[in-house]
Amino acid sequence: MPRLDDDHTGARIKEQRKLARLTQRQLADRIPYSYSLLNQVECGAKPATVDLMAAVAHALRIDVTVLTGQPYVTELQQDRLAALVRPIREALDLYDLGADDALDTGPPARLLAAADQLCADVRATHLRKAATQLPGLIAELTTAAWRTPSTELWQALASTYRTAHDVTVKLGYYDLSSVALDRLGWAAQRASDPCLDSLRQYMRALVYFREGDYGIGLRLISSGHSILGAVDVTRESIAVSGQLHLGASVIAARADDSHAVETHLAEAAGHARRIGDASDVHWLSFGPTNVALHRMSAAVEMRQYDDALAQAKKIKPKLPPTLATSRRSHFLIDQARSEMETGRTEAALASIVEARHAAPEQTRYHPGARETIKGLVHLSRRTPDSLGHMAAWIGL
Rank of each mutant, 00 (worst) to 15 (best):
G69I: 04
A158K: 00
A255I: 01
A308V: 13
T363Y: 05
I138F: 12
I88T: 09
E90G: 02
D256T: 12
M53A: 15
D232L: 05
A102T: 11
K314I: 09
L76D: 06
T160L: 05
L52I: 14
R61K: 01
S222E: 09
K129L: 14
A312P: 05
L246A: 00
N39G: 15
W283Y: 06
P320Q: 14
R21M: 15
H271E: 00
D213M: 03
A144I: 06
I238T: 03
S249G: 00
G106T: 04
K318D: 03
A298Q: 08
G270S: 08
Y35F: 15
D306P: 04
A131P: 08
A130V: 15
S386T: 13
W393K: 11
I315S: 03
R254F: 02
Q77Y: 01
R190D: 09
L157V: 04
T151Q: 14
W283M: 12
C43Y: 15
L396D: 08
S223N: 08
T168F: 01
R86W: 06
G215W: 06
P321I: 08
A109D: 13
L171M: 07
A59L: 06
L103H: 03
Y305S: 11
R210I: 07
G375W: 05
L137H: 07
A392C: 09
K318S: 14
P107V: 09
K46D: 07
A124N: 10
S386L: 13
